[in-house]
Design a protein around this nucleic acid. Structure first.
Lengths: 203, 203, 203, 203
DNA sequence: ACCTGCGGGACACCCCGTTTGT
DNA sequence: ACAAACGGGGTGTCCCGCAGGT
């Protein structure tokens, strides 16, 4: 009996994910979600207190999967920093091709974040965390002599921005470029610019 | 009489811009726009056929100003390519600090672009154009010996993605970092990576 | 100059007539009338105080033309009553074929009559007048021995009802029957039933 | 639970019927219907997809009741045709006096029929059917020797037109005449005109 | 516990018939 | 003669709570 409940919840989430990604949060009605999930509105509100709750659940799931894929994959030691980073970029590349349409909802998260404080906190925090994480690793790369003495925070900001920009464009204009290649080669260029031994002088 | 009309149109556009930026397109009602602009719904629909028309006008205005600021500023010749690029990055920096809240609507444009084909075309086209423009300039930089032989298209994609990512984060999390500095230093790093004379070997 | 004004009024009336007939009074907007007449709303309200005023003018015109065609044609004397009536029916037949789409507005008049007292008075009065007129003529027919002693008022009511019913069906279902023939033959049958010499006994 | 739903539907239909009859379809707002029915717009749109759906349901109900009263009452055999017809006319008379204000909606049906194809089909079809039905019976009357050899189709058209005209005037000008008597006596006159034994010569 | 239908208001966008200034 | 402005509804749809049944 409880399993049935869990399965219904899943159906709601899946339907909502799809519709939010396709049409946007505001444009998606509870009725549509219910229709797609194959149940009544009463059932919907039995499992979730509101439409926003579904959105939040989706957001949490997404963030958790992001953490699992990346945080866990961050180079903890042993391996040289730049190589580890490039490895991450390549991993991200796979995420891209796999993510399919599910990445669309990404934009929706950011759009909603500006209106709802709760969503905002949960959306922004991870990105700050990634920046800090990257900054730490870059600092380690500097220490180990792989990078020259760049500003680690700004460089980390550049990395995250790059990722965000690629994702966004990948969502809006998927056929506009081979975004996975753009991502990998961008990171390569960035690291070339940070390599130790470069004169570091400006143009 | 005609001036009055123009002024009313302006008031509507300004009010809509503000509200779309603050609360989003969907969440903003025509009634709110009218109230903020200080006129009636009848007047609104006298000047614009629909809410979307206002949005489109706003989009066009924004794109036009973007073109004026950047396309016109693209290095046409004489000056060395990298320097010209960095100059553009610095100019963009000013746009940032000036843009104020008006940049928020940027996200709204992208979010709406996925739903409305007309908005999509007008939103995506310029970014493709920027990419092509940048690619051309980069190729010129390679020819003149400033850059090594990188893939110009991918590098241009990296530049645009960087800008998009910075803007987006600047909108959602304005106090999360000094985004204008991130932008400038990112471009610097990217160019360091493309400089001629580097061995170009991978890590 | 005054001629121009008169011509504009005419254009408005004509456009309104057409639109009222096609789409109905309520569904026709002042803007549509103006567009079809090729002028602005300001001009419209310069010539008519309201949309209803146009409708009333149209109604009056129609009633006047009706009077001209029928009241004037009523058998004043000399000729035998039944023949005169049949002559009128034949004349009505021509009106039918000529009236074209302009008859559609007839239904609109009746529909509006139930809501607006002023329209009601002007719409109903003529029909009562026709009934009285017919009743008088029928009485004359009885006096002269053409008809047997039927109830003149009821017979007149039958005549008018017949006409109304035929017109209405002609408007709604023009291809459903040859309504002009139905009208003529109906009147013939009715008069056969009123002819003197019949036994007048019931079935 | 199901009964409650049915009762609510009924309340909506009844309120709509009354308001459509009083003020017309276009002039009646959904809000008014809800207010009169004592429920909210949410409830309204739960039971009906649109205002027009209510109208169609009303139309169907009316047509069904019409069929029940008349089609079923058509003389199937045994009884002489003219008598059967007069019996029908008398039955119609009762319908009149009972129908009360509910007949007003009749006009609304016809007025709307010109605009909406679906309404048109459903409105016109029955009247054509009645005409065919009457024509068949009249033909039977001719065969059995009750009527002389009139054109059955035209005569049937006359009958229906008479009914339509009487109803319409009864709706618009209820106090203008004793419409029930007009109807009965009109049919009598018409049958007098069709009686066998008359010389059939024209005037 | 799980699910359903019914109902509630609020409000969206659009457009209406009209008046005001020029 | 007209463009500009006015409010007040028009329908339809939204997200959401209950009461009741399985």
């Amino acid at each position: 009996m409880q399993e049935r409940s869990e399965e219904t919840r899943g159906r709601i989430l899946q339907a909502a994910m799809r519709l939010f990604a396709d049409a946007g949060y505001d444009a998606t009605g509870v009725a549509e979600i219910c229709e797609r999930a194959g149940l009544s509105k009463g059932a919907f509100y039995h499992h979730f207190p509101s439409k926003q709750a579904v959105f939040l659940e989706l957001l949490d799931q997404w963030l958790a999967s992001l953490d699992k894929d990346f945080i866990a994959a961050v180079p903890v030691g042993g391996v040289a920093v730049p190589e580890a980073f490039l490895d991450m970029a390549r991993r991200a590349r796979e995420v891209f091709t796999i993510a399919d349409g599910r990445l669309s909802i990404f934009l929706e998260f950011w759009a909603q974040a500006r209106k709802d404080p709760e969503i905002w906190t949960r959306t922004v925090a991870p990105f700050r965390r990634y920046r800090d994480l990257f900054a730490g690793v870059i600092r380690r790369g500097i220490d180990e002599g792989s990078f020259r003495a760049v500003d680690a925070d700004l460089a980390a900001g550049a990395l995250v921005s790059l990722a965000v920009g690629v994702i966004l464009q990948g969502v809006v204009d998927p056929n506009g470029a081979k975004w996975d290649e753009v991502l990998v080669s961008s990171v390569e260029l960035l690291f070339d610019g940070m390599r130790a031994g470069d004169r570091g002088e400006r143009w």
